[in-house]
């Protein structure tokens, strides 16, 4: 083998070793930064750690290229490729950063607001630099990347403390006066859980059933399921089987 070829192979091996070391170093640095900076908030820590990781990778790439001792043209091409790769790989971070800026300036919602975005609806638990946490009706914690808010309209339902929710009850056909009477009794029973008076919207006969629609002013929408069960139980205690739709 010619000395020039051997020299090139050695340089390539050295450059690869530098890149491998850089990769592991950047991974380790990211974890260390995340851990040590977590007291300033997880959002900030992970963002800083990610930037530090890319910086280390970039430096490693520069060292590897200098080891290869390529000419200016080759360095420019490799530099451009690396730059594009970094841009593509950091696309989500840039998007999240833009979204964070959008959320900070436009303030479409704040903590404790009840919002709907995409198919998710819930109370905003926290707004971080990278993501936002929601708690749904069912008490599930949903983590939404902030970039999601750039692509989907946000409906903020927190303009009033209580929201009126319509309940549709289906019960066996019976005398409408009796239906009205039981509805009033049940509404009185659940009133302590509501803010304001429940309203009876309509009672109508549909086939062999009676359909009742009532509107309930509810503050904590997470109690909907519990409230439904309470209504069913209240009817059951009166000997009436109801279904809630």
């Amino acid at each position: 083998m010619e000395p020039e070829t051997l020299n090139l192979i050695l340089r390539i091996i050295s450059a690869v070793i530098v890149l491998v070391i850089t990769y592991f170093l950047s991974k380790h640095a990211r974890l260390s930064f995340e851990k040590s900076l977590s007291r300033f908030g997880t959002g900030f820590a992970s963002k800083f750690a990610e930037i530090a990781r890319y910086f280390i990778i970039f430096m490693g790439a520069v060292i590897a290229i200098s080891i290869l001792s390529l000419d200016v043209m080759a360095i420019s091409i490799i530099g451009a490729v690396i730059f594009i790769l970094v841009l593509v790989s950091m696309r989500d971070i840039f998007l999240n950063m833009a979204a964070e800026l959008y959320l900070a300036i436009r303030r479409p919602f704040k903590e404790n607001d009840w919002i709907r975005v995409g198919d998710v609806e819930g109370v905003v638990k926290s707004i971080g630099g990278i993501d936002t946490e929601l708690i749904t009706y069912d008490g599930d914690l949903v983590i939404i990347p902030n970039s999601f808010f750039l692509r989907h309209p946000v409906i903020n339902k927190s303009q009033s403390i209580a929201r009126r929710i319509e309940f549709k009850l289906m019960m066996p056909r019976m005398d409408l006066d009796r239906v009205k009477e039981t509805v009033q009794e049940v509404m009185k029973e659940i009133k302590p859980e509501l803010l304001g008076d429940p309203e009876l919207i309509s009672i109508k006969e549909t086939g062999d059933k009676v359909e009742v629609i009532m509107s309930l002013p509810i503050v904590n929408l997470r109690k909907l399921r519990w409230l439904s069960a309470k209504i069913v139980k209240a009817y059951h205690a009166r000997g009436i089987d109801v279904e809630i739709e």
Partner: peptide
């Protein structure tokens, strides 16, 4: 899941803060 509001009115602000923080973290409206 059932509480609509938590009002912290103890005679200690640090206790009030603790209770409100937990209420907020657990999405009490």
């Amino acid at each position: 899941e059932l509480l609509d509001a938590v009002i912290a009115a103890t005679e200690s602000d640090s206790l009030n803060l603790r209770y409100c923080r937990v209420a907020r973290e657990n999405a009490v409206p």
